[in-house]
Protein backbone atom coordinates (compact mmCIF):
# COMPACT_ATOMS: atom_id res chain seq x y z
CA UNK A 1 0.00 0.00 0.00
CA UNK A 2 2.83 2.34 0.81
CA UNK A 3 4.07 1.90 -2.76
CA UNK A 4 0.89 3.58 -3.92
CA UNK A 5 0.56 6.00 -1.05
CA UNK A 6 3.50 7.24 0.93
CA UNK A 7 1.30 8.99 3.49
CA UNK A 8 0.31 5.98 5.56
CA UNK A 9 1.70 5.17 9.02
CA UNK A 10 3.75 2.29 7.72
CA UNK A 11 5.96 1.60 10.73
CA UNK A 12 3.13 1.44 13.26
CA UNK A 13 0.98 -0.57 10.86
CA UNK A 14 3.67 -3.20 10.42
CA UNK A 15 4.12 -3.63 14.18
CA UNK A 16 0.49 -4.63 14.58
CA UNK A 17 -0.08 -6.94 11.58
CA UNK A 18 0.28 -10.25 13.43
CA UNK A 19 -1.88 -9.06 16.33
CA UNK A 20 -4.67 -8.08 13.93
CA UNK A 21 -4.23 -11.25 11.87
CA UNK A 22 -4.54 -13.47 14.94
CA UNK A 23 -7.60 -11.70 16.30
CA UNK A 24 -9.48 -11.22 13.03
CA UNK A 25 -8.72 -14.54 11.35
CA UNK A 26 -8.50 -16.84 14.38
CA UNK A 27 -10.42 -15.44 17.37
CA UNK A 28 -13.07 -12.96 16.33
CA UNK A 29 -16.53 -14.49 16.00
CA UNK A 30 -18.77 -12.79 13.48
CA UNK A 31 -21.80 -15.01 13.82
CA UNK A 32 -25.17 -14.03 15.16
CA UNK A 33 -25.55 -10.98 17.34
CA UNK A 34 -25.62 -13.34 20.34
CA UNK A 35 -21.91 -14.08 20.22
CA UNK A 36 -20.52 -11.44 17.88
CA UNK A 37 -17.12 -10.20 19.02
CA UNK A 38 -15.99 -6.59 18.63
CA UNK A 39 -12.62 -5.33 17.43
CA UNK A 40 -11.65 -1.76 18.19
CA UNK A 41 -8.47 -0.42 16.65
CA UNK A 42 -7.91 2.40 19.10
CA UNK A 43 -4.56 3.13 17.49
CA UNK A 44 -6.46 4.02 14.35
CA UNK A 45 -3.35 5.08 12.47
CA UNK A 46 -2.63 1.35 11.92
CA UNK A 47 -5.68 1.30 9.63
CA UNK A 48 -3.66 0.01 6.61
CA UNK A 49 -2.83 -3.17 8.56
CA UNK A 50 -6.48 -3.59 9.54
CA UNK A 51 -7.66 -3.11 5.95
CA UNK A 52 -5.13 -5.66 4.68
CA UNK A 53 -6.38 -8.23 7.20
CA UNK A 54 -10.03 -7.43 6.41
CA UNK A 55 -9.18 -8.01 2.74
CA UNK A 56 -7.82 -11.44 3.67
CA UNK A 57 -11.22 -12.11 5.17
CA UNK A 58 -12.89 -10.91 1.95
CA UNK A 59 -14.64 -8.07 3.73
CA UNK A 60 -12.79 -5.52 1.57
CA UNK A 61 -11.86 -6.16 -2.09
CA UNK A 62 -8.09 -6.53 -2.43
CA UNK A 63 -7.92 -4.04 -5.28
CA UNK A 64 -9.46 -1.43 -2.98
CA UNK A 65 -6.34 -1.58 -0.77
CA UNK A 66 -4.23 0.27 -3.32
CA UNK A 67 -6.72 3.13 -3.27
CA UNK A 68 -6.31 3.85 0.45
CA UNK A 69 -6.88 7.55 1.22
CA UNK A 70 -8.00 8.19 -2.35
CA UNK A 71 -10.91 10.62 -2.52
CA UNK A 72 -13.02 7.96 -4.23
CA UNK A 73 -12.05 5.10 -1.93
CA UNK A 74 -14.00 3.86 1.10
CA UNK A 75 -10.66 3.31 2.85
CA UNK A 76 -10.05 6.36 5.01
CA UNK A 77 -6.76 7.29 6.66
CA UNK A 78 -8.29 6.12 9.94
CA UNK A 79 -11.05 3.51 10.44
CA UNK A 80 -14.68 4.54 9.91
CA UNK A 81 -17.68 2.34 10.64
CA UNK A 82 -18.90 2.60 7.05
CA UNK A 83 -15.96 0.37 6.10
CA UNK A 84 -17.00 -3.32 6.26
CA UNK A 85 -15.51 -5.07 9.29
CA UNK A 86 -14.85 -1.86 11.26
CA UNK A 87 -16.64 -1.75 14.63
CA UNK A 88 -15.61 1.73 15.78
CA UNK A 89 -14.56 4.92 14.03
CA UNK A 90 -11.24 5.83 15.57
CA UNK A 91 -8.27 8.07 14.89
CA UNK A 92 -8.22 10.15 18.04
CA UNK A 93 -6.08 8.31 20.58
CA UNK A 94 -7.34 7.29 24.01
CA UNK A 95 -10.99 6.74 23.12
CA UNK A 96 -11.09 3.09 22.08
CA UNK A 97 -10.86 1.61 25.55
CA UNK A 98 -13.69 3.75 26.94
CA UNK A 99 -15.89 2.74 24.01
CA UNK A 100 -14.83 -0.88 24.53
CA UNK A 101 -15.84 -0.68 28.19
CA UNK A 102 -19.27 0.57 27.10
CA UNK A 103 -19.66 -2.21 24.53
CA UNK A 104 -18.48 -4.88 27.00
CA UNK A 105 -20.95 -3.69 29.64
CA UNK A 106 -23.73 -3.38 27.06
CA UNK A 107 -23.14 -6.98 25.93
CA UNK A 108 -23.20 -8.23 29.52
CA UNK A 109 -26.42 -6.40 30.28
CA UNK A 110 -28.02 -7.94 27.19
CA UNK A 111 -26.70 -11.37 28.27
CA UNK A 112 -24.73 -11.72 25.08
CA UNK A 113 -21.48 -13.67 24.93
CA UNK A 114 -19.48 -11.34 22.73
CA UNK A 115 -15.95 -10.36 23.62
CA UNK A 116 -14.36 -6.98 23.03
CA UNK A 117 -10.80 -6.62 21.73
CA UNK A 118 -9.21 -3.17 21.96
CA UNK A 119 -5.82 -2.56 20.35
CA UNK A 120 -3.91 0.43 21.67
CA UNK A 121 -0.44 1.79 21.10
CA UNK A 122 2.21 2.14 23.80
CA UNK A 123 2.45 5.88 23.05
CA UNK A 124 -1.33 6.02 23.45
CA UNK A 125 -0.87 5.16 27.11
CA UNK A 126 0.06 8.83 27.59
CA UNK A 127 -3.63 9.72 27.17
CA UNK A 128 -5.33 10.33 30.51
CA UNK A 129 -8.59 8.86 29.24
CA UNK A 130 -6.98 5.41 29.00
CA UNK A 131 -6.72 5.49 32.80
CA UNK A 132 -10.27 6.74 33.27
CA UNK A 133 -11.38 3.71 31.28
CA UNK A 134 -8.96 1.17 32.77
CA UNK A 135 -10.00 1.94 36.33
CA UNK A 136 -13.69 1.77 35.43
CA UNK A 137 -13.33 -1.55 33.59
CA UNK A 138 -11.54 -3.08 36.58
CA UNK A 139 -14.20 -1.86 39.00
CA UNK A 140 -16.88 -3.53 36.86
CA UNK A 141 -14.81 -6.74 36.46
CA UNK A 142 -15.38 -6.85 32.71
CA UNK A 143 -13.90 -10.26 31.89
CA UNK A 144 -15.21 -10.01 28.32
CA UNK A 145 -12.77 -7.18 27.62
CA UNK A 146 -9.27 -7.83 26.30
CA UNK A 147 -6.99 -4.96 25.45
CA UNK A 148 -3.73 -5.35 23.61
CA UNK A 149 -0.92 -2.81 23.86
CA UNK A 150 1.20 -2.86 20.72
CA UNK A 151 4.49 -2.09 22.46
CA UNK A 152 6.64 -1.09 19.50
CA UNK A 153 8.67 1.31 21.59
CA UNK A 154 8.04 4.42 19.51
CA UNK A 155 5.61 7.28 19.38
CA UNK A 156 5.43 10.08 16.82
CA UNK A 157 8.35 12.21 17.91
CA UNK A 158 10.74 9.67 19.36
CA UNK A 159 11.26 6.42 21.28
CA UNK A 160 8.59 6.07 23.99
CA UNK A 161 11.21 5.91 26.76
CA UNK A 162 12.61 9.24 25.54
CA UNK A 163 9.22 10.95 25.57
CA UNK A 164 7.86 9.53 28.79
CA UNK A 165 8.94 6.20 30.34
CA UNK A 166 6.52 3.32 29.84
CA UNK A 167 8.43 0.37 31.35
CA UNK A 168 6.37 0.49 34.55
CA UNK A 169 2.99 0.34 32.82
CA UNK A 170 2.35 -3.42 33.30
CA UNK A 171 2.70 -2.90 37.06
CA UNK A 172 0.21 -0.05 36.95
CA UNK A 173 -2.37 -2.10 35.04
CA UNK A 174 -1.88 -4.98 37.51
CA UNK A 175 -2.30 -2.65 40.49
CA UNK A 176 -5.56 -1.32 39.04
CA UNK A 177 -6.94 -4.85 38.91
CA UNK A 178 -6.28 -6.13 35.40
CA UNK A 179 -4.96 -9.54 34.40
CA UNK A 180 -1.63 -8.62 32.78
CA UNK A 181 -0.11 -10.90 30.13
CA UNK A 182 2.97 -10.53 27.94
CA UNK A 183 3.61 -11.95 24.50
CA UNK A 184 5.74 -11.68 21.39
CA UNK A 185 3.59 -9.52 19.14
CA UNK A 186 5.02 -10.99 15.95
CA UNK A 187 4.54 -14.65 16.92
CA UNK A 188 1.03 -15.87 16.22
CA UNK A 189 1.35 -18.78 18.66
CA UNK A 190 2.53 -16.45 21.43
CA UNK A 191 -0.31 -13.99 20.68
CA UNK A 192 -2.82 -16.86 20.66
CA UNK A 193 -1.69 -18.11 24.08
CA UNK A 194 -2.02 -14.60 25.48
CA UNK A 195 -5.53 -14.20 24.02
CA UNK A 196 -6.58 -17.62 25.40
CA UNK A 197 -5.32 -16.52 28.78
CA UNK A 198 -7.44 -13.37 28.49
CA UNK A 199 -10.53 -15.28 27.41
CA UNK A 200 -10.27 -17.53 30.48
CA UNK A 201 -9.56 -14.71 32.91
CA UNK A 202 -12.11 -13.57 35.46
CA UNK A 203 -10.73 -10.03 35.24
CA UNK A 204 -10.30 -7.73 32.24
CA UNK A 205 -7.04 -8.60 30.50
CA UNK A 206 -4.32 -6.41 29.05
CA UNK A 207 -1.74 -8.02 26.80
CA UNK A 208 1.59 -6.27 26.39
CA UNK A 209 2.69 -7.40 22.94
CA UNK A 210 6.36 -6.69 22.34
CA UNK A 211 6.70 -5.63 18.75
CA UNK A 212 9.11 -3.97 16.36
CA UNK A 213 8.01 -0.86 14.59
CA UNK A 214 8.39 -1.23 10.82
CA UNK A 215 8.77 -5.02 11.18
CA UNK A 216 9.85 -6.59 7.88
CA UNK A 217 11.26 -3.44 6.29
CA UNK A 218 14.89 -3.09 7.41
CA UNK A 219 15.06 0.51 6.21
CA UNK A 220 12.56 1.64 8.83
CA UNK A 221 12.64 -1.27 11.27
CA UNK A 222 12.87 -0.33 14.95
CA UNK A 223 12.97 3.39 14.24
CA UNK A 224 10.57 6.27 14.33
CA UNK A 225 10.59 6.37 10.52
CA UNK A 226 7.12 5.90 9.04
CA UNK A 227 8.01 6.05 5.38
CA UNK A 228 10.35 4.55 2.88
CA UNK A 229 10.86 6.65 -0.21
CA UNK A 230 9.51 5.19 -3.43
CA UNK A 231 12.84 3.71 -4.49
CA UNK A 232 13.44 2.07 -1.13
CA UNK A 233 9.95 0.67 -1.02
CA UNK A 234 11.01 -1.98 -3.50
CA UNK A 235 12.48 -3.73 -0.42
Amino acid sequence: MSLYNNDIHLGSSLSTVEILTTIVLKFKRDGSSEDKDWLILSKGHAAPALYAVLAEKNLIPTNELWKIQDINSILQGHPEIFIPGVDMSTGSLGQGLSFGVGVAEGLKMSRRNGRVYVIMGDGEQDEGQVWEAATHAASMKLNNLISIVDANGYQLDDATEEIKPKHYLPEVWRAIGWNVVHCDGHDIISISYALENGINSRKPTVIFAKTIRGKGLPLIENSKKQKVNNGDAEE
Binding site: S98, V101, G102, G106
Partner: peptide, 15 residues
Protein backbone atom coordinates in the same frame (compact mmCIF):
# COMPACT_ATOMS: atom_id res chain seq x y z
CA UNK B 1 -14.24 12.01 28.66
CA UNK B 2 -14.62 8.37 29.58
CA UNK B 3 -18.27 9.02 30.45
CA UNK B 4 -19.06 10.07 26.88
CA UNK B 5 -17.23 7.21 25.16
CA UNK B 6 -18.62 4.69 27.67
CA UNK B 7 -22.08 5.94 26.71
CA UNK B 8 -21.12 5.64 23.04
CA UNK B 9 -20.14 2.00 23.55
CA UNK B 10 -23.42 1.24 25.31
CA UNK B 11 -25.33 2.93 22.49
CA UNK B 12 -23.45 0.85 19.91
CA UNK B 13 -24.89 -2.30 21.52
CA UNK B 14 -28.42 -0.92 21.28
CA UNK B 15 -28.81 0.68 24.70
Amino acid sequence: QHLIDFAAGLAATGK
